[in-house]
């Protein structure tokens, strides 16, 4: 007679996988970052007159403290363009603007472009706007969309008025250049 071993079959359960979905994090403001990065590249590809090549390099944002302002602070505050330390400023009214190398004018404040162009020309400020038609109102660089991408257009005549020299590379990559 065969001996039987009392080996019980223990039911073994599958360990659950609990496959979930990838967590969506808070949506990053990609548009603000692109604009901040562009503003930095403008700073590297524009030549300012001699008197503006010393001291701090001031990038101003005119309007509310938008995401672009926050990105500029985050990425560039304390860094340098050549030997000039970058300082990011926010201006709520045009009288407060003293002296800056680049002034970015938010879309809701674009109606100030003509007045700011007159005010900032003697201070050799590169006016950067983001509203269609701003180049004819005094802006030097204007953000525009081309397809799905953020691009820019340039008014070289306005640049000359502000005594700024724009590098060919920046002009060549612009979607529209007014000479």
């Amino acid at each position: 007679m065969k001996r039987v071993f009392y080996i019980f079959i223990v039911l073994i359960a599958f360990i659950g996988l609990n496959s979930s979905t990838v967590k969506t994090t808070q949506m990053p403001d990609t548009r603000a970052v692109v604009k901040a990065l562009y503003i930095y590249t403008f700073a590297t590809l524009v030549e300012w007159p001699e008197q503006k090549r010393s001291g701090d390099f001031v990038i101003g944002v005119f309007g509310e403290k938008t995401s672009v302002y926050e990105e500029l602070i985050k990425k560039y505050s304390g860094k340098a363009i050549g030997s000039q330390k970058i300082v990011i400023q926010n201006y709520r009214n045009k009288e407060a603007i003293q002296n800056c190398h680049i002034l970015y004018i938010t879309e809701v404040n674009s109606h100030y472009v003509p007045a700011l162009a007159t005010q900032m020309a003697p201070k050799n400020t590169l006016l950067v706007s983001e509203k269609v038609g701003s180049l004819t109102k005094g802006a030097i660089v204007n953000f525009v969309l081309e397809g799905n991408q953020q691009k820019y257009e340039i008014n070289k005549t306005n640049a000359k008025t502000h005594k700024l020299v724009i590098a060919d590379k920046l002009t060549d990559l612009a979607v529209n250049v007014i000479k």
């Binding site: 979905t21 990838v22 990609t30 692109v34 990065l37 562009y38 930095y40 860094k79 953020q150 990559l173």
Partner: peptide, 30 residues
């Protein structure tokens, strides 16, 4: 998940770009 992976990849091209990027690189990243 695959949609979000591609979305995150796209966002990363912008969000973690080198702050001292050149204009050509910025356009390429876009």
């Amino acid at each position: 998940n695959m949609g979000i992976i591609y979305y995150n990849l796209g966002a990363d091209y912008i969000m973690i770009a080198d702050p001292e990027i050149t204009v050509e690189e910025l356009m390429m990243n876009q």
